[in-house]
Amino acid sequence: MNNLSKKYGDTVAVNGISFGLSKGEVFAFLGPNGAGKTTTVEILECLRAPTGGQAKVLDYDVSKRSDQSEIRKRIGVLPQDFNAIDRLTVRENIDYFGAMYDHQLDSDQLIELVDLKDKRDEQFKTLSGGLKQRVGLAVALVNDPALVFLDEPTTGLDPRARRDVWYVIERLKKQGKTVFLTTHYMDEAEYLADTVSIIDHGQIIASGTPNELIDAHGGKKTLVIREAGEDGLKFLPPGISRPQLKNEDDIYIPLNNGELTTILIAIGQTPLANKEIEVRRPTLDDVFLNLTGRRVSEEGE
């Protein structure tokens, strides 16, 4: 995909982005709401025409009509906010969407993959949000696609249901499928993705493995001393970088090189030694914060 862009009237939703996916990887397209994730994904799914640039999906050109039908046969899609047909059962829904292709995977096998065996004959409308999303995943896989697009598959789910979806995505990865995932959850990208591209205002602002991104843009590690209270501050050695009190009485200390041992030795003989002490790596949240000056969650759903 090269220099792709999409305008809606005067709004530039996607502004000249370029990236590529390797076979068998989980690629996460990470960005806040309105960043241009869905627009990009839908261009790749041949649902929207780009206003500039080129994109190839599985070596087919998204702008060529004859190539589009080849793409459709080979990709699996879970649209953002997708719902299957309310009054069809889980199994009927899988077979319904499966019948749109020349070949479909065995529905029992898919039901097993998304762990819905005991809900197989329940109507879609009776399922909880997490289970519905798993039906959506099964439906996205029904043609045994080489490339799967999942647009915000866990948005709006409770933590437990999110984990279940993650688990299914991990299984897909084990099966060797290439997965294109969009999300505005940093932890999701960090947990699932081999490669992450961060998109903001229609532009890619950073790309790489989660580790590379954190190393390059995450900033310092942080030492956290839990429930130390304001009193705890006086036990810290002088000259270390600005300690902060967060969550009432947790102490946060950004670590410069070599400071960790200095601090640990200094507090070894004080009451702080009995507290819960943790060294935190920066996360993709910090990466986004450092790159944009904003937190993703501030503008989340």
Partner: peptide, 13 residues
């Protein structure tokens, strides 16, 4: 509204 049409449009239908 339920994105069923969108989903179908990504298939050969």
């Amino acid at each position: 509204e339920l994105k069923i049409i969108k989903k179908l449009a990504t298939t050969p239908l």
